[in-house]
Design a binder for these strands. Structure first.
Lengths: 205, 205
DNA sequence: TTATAAAACTGACCGCGGTCAATTATTTTT
DNA sequence: AAAAATAATTGACCGCGGTCAGTTTTATAA
């Protein structure tokens, strides 16, 4: 299984990805049409579906690659030593993920790894993200130690997803993702340190 | 604006909802086809789209109504006084929400209130859920008091969403949603009480 | 009651994602 | 080098969500 593809196939796939990338750069993810991609790539429609499971699968790959770049930039940044710095370092990634409903929905849909096989790039990035967070938390003072850092990292991720999804809620989209996230992360990572100088959504209502 | 609808319109809408409900009960949400609904309801296709924004909008309403029932049952249950009881009481709702990818995706997509106008039933249920959780937490001993209960309730919700989405991940779907959720909720609501008797996903990695 | 306006419904039509039997290109075997 | 086997590509076709100019029904005005 997993035969080596012929080079014609590799070139065809590259043409498809390139054509799709151009369209996305020009018109955005939501505007991508399979018929446009195959026209620009100069191949038949059926070819597209022999390379990709479906349209969203290609989009998931493009989005996953962009997430990978942003995550790598966060990993290359100076390691954050405070909770606020942690939130700030991940902000570009989060803003990209929540740039619009369409992209966020695809990320959500492909974030679960179907299995050891056919893991999407998006799912892999989620694991990378938790691993990175775990490393940061291991090296961070003023973080609770009553539970493991992996659990803490996964929790940060859960709060981040929540903050992103609230962006699309009219009642909460006044603040930035980072500002919505901060109070939760403080309460999660450093309980009892009563970080109450910023007003939260919860306080307002 | 918001004129009173003629009774013919009310009856037509009821026929559409009834037909859709029958199909869903028989074949599931994912199998619903607009053409089947209008055939069974005895109306034209265009009529469907004068009553509902699109197909998913109808599905969101059906799903939202079911969520409302399950949430009401949770609210009518004896008020939970422990963290484990809290997780157990909400379990039926969570299991319904995460019954399959298709349903969970729709819930995620419609969970953000677009604005004060046109709030979906699903979005309203999310607010109800946080309100219910807040009430429970207000009456619960052994819960941290360094942050507000609304923030705590929203955090529980964030962890619940995370636990549900992990159901579709091959690496985590061995446990029930409740078992995946418990360690996070304990660490969130009662930090420092080192509830380590159960093995978590994080421990296993 | 009859004319007029507004609401509700109709169904032919379109766009686009996805399929698959048939065809062409490439590799392997003899 | 020719034949056989496998990989890659093709494009006509289908299913289904969604549209909209035109028709019918209902409410309102004269």
């Amino acid at each position: 299984m997993a035969r080596v593809p012929q080079k014609r196939r590799v070139k065809t796939r590259a043409k498809l990805v390139a054509a799709a990338g151009t369209i996305v750069a020009r018109e955005g993810y939501a505007a991508l049409r399979v018929e446009d991609v195959v026209r620009d790539a100069g191949v038949a429609k059926g070819t597209f579906f022999s390379h990709f499971e479906d349209k969203d699968s290609l989009l998931a790959q493009l989005i996953g690659e962009e997430m990978h770049v942003l995550l790598a930039e966060a990993a290359d940044s100076p390691m954050p030593h405070t909770i606020d710095a942690l939130c700030s370092t991940l902000e570009p990634l989060y803003e990209y993920m929540a740039q619009d409903r369409f992209v966020f929905d695809i990320i959500m849909r492909y974030s679960g790894a179907a299995g050891i096989e056919d893991e999407t790039e998006i799912a892999i990035n989620f694991f990378r993200q938790v691993a990175l967070l775990t490393r940061w938390l291991d090296n961070m003072a003023d973080v609770r130690r009553d539970v493991g850092t992996v659990l803490l990292a996964e929790g940060v991720h859960a709060f981040a997803i929540n903050a992103m999804s609230l962006k699309f809620c009219a009642l909460h989209n006044a603040n930035s993702i980072r500002d919505r996230l901060r109070p939760y992360i403080h309460a999660w990572l450093a309980p009892g340190s009563s970080q109450r100088d910023h007003q939260t959504d919860a306080d307002q209502q």
